[in-house]
Design a binder for these strands. Structure first.
Lengths: 154, 154
DNA sequence: TATTGTTATACTCTATAACTATA
DNA sequence: TATAGTTATAGAGTATAACAATA
């Protein structure tokens, strides 16, 4: 690093955010909060689901017979954290825990018929939500944003 | 139940994320988690601060005499949520609540000398953290990413 | 010994509602 | 009536540690 640069400052009303507008994390968080609020309005209120739960359902649906520990690894959370999530989804009748045929410690997660139907409905809502978001960008910019986010996440 | 068989054995690593990779929110969240972990390692562990607390300090530093309610508005959280944050920062000797000269209901937030020194140290760590992140992108791509995130957040 | 699912516990972040002291 | 700060409380979301059953 060379000389200290003066941080960028933006004004919102009479209020300054200091050096925050010069940080990627600041804009990442703002975009995320905005997107989550939009998701809550357009998908959450209609289908009673959060981005996190929808993600879990997607991974379960895309990997039939997935063990809870594998799901935890995929979502990058602890095994113990998954338990209550699976409890919730099972209580709503969307998934079932099936005993594994090869390992009696394991529970294989599967979507129920209701789960498949509800997920299909959720997917339509999510696609509509995504389309509304994407409308803020050109198709090229949306592609570019995805590429840059993947690059940043490693 | 007996008729349903697993279509494929799921091995570690060969896991599908379904439609998630087609969603901006998925990539936004992954980038955010990656960035927060990097922040925790490079800034948090050294200076004992989180992105949220650092943001609060930045806004307080950039707006001397800010009332708690204005800070709450700036951070887009409830007044009641701010109380414990201010308690924490005050307990660490980084800020003080000063009685307002014009409104006896109001507390004006100010950095202490220690707060100014600590914040300057944090800022150096944050800039180093930012530089490491930015190294994953070309300077043009970093600029472009910021632009696209602002556009997405409205 | 190691792993799977589970429980108990705790900590963070956030919100709502009610209270007090002012305005 | 409305606002500023506070308190009490609750609900997600997450983590750690310990446990029984099984590998």
């Amino acid at each position: 690093m060379t000389a200290r640069r003066k941080p960028a400052i933006i004004e919102t009303g009479s209020l300054s955010y200091g050096m925050l507008p010069g940080l990627l994390g600041f804009h990442l968080r703002r975009a995320q909060v905005s997107l989550f609020k939009h998701f809550a309005r357009t998908v959450g209120q209609v289908a009673g689901i959060t981005p996190g739960l929808f993600g879990m359902l997607q991974v379960i649906a895309a990997n039939p017979g997935l063990a809870q520990s594998r799901l935890a690894e995929a979502m990058e959370v602890e095994r113990s954290t998954i338990v209550k999530v699976v409890d919730q989804l099972e209580a709503r009748g969307l998934i079932v825990r099936e005993p594994s045929a090869v390992d009696r410690r394991s529970h294989c997660l599967e979507l129920t018929e209701l789960g498949r139907a509800e997920l299909a409905r959720m997917e339509q809502l999510v696609l509509a939500h995504e389309a509304e978001l994407a409308a803020k960008l050109t198709p090229e910019d949306r592609q570019e944003l995805t590429r840059l986010l993947i690059q940043l996440a490693d």
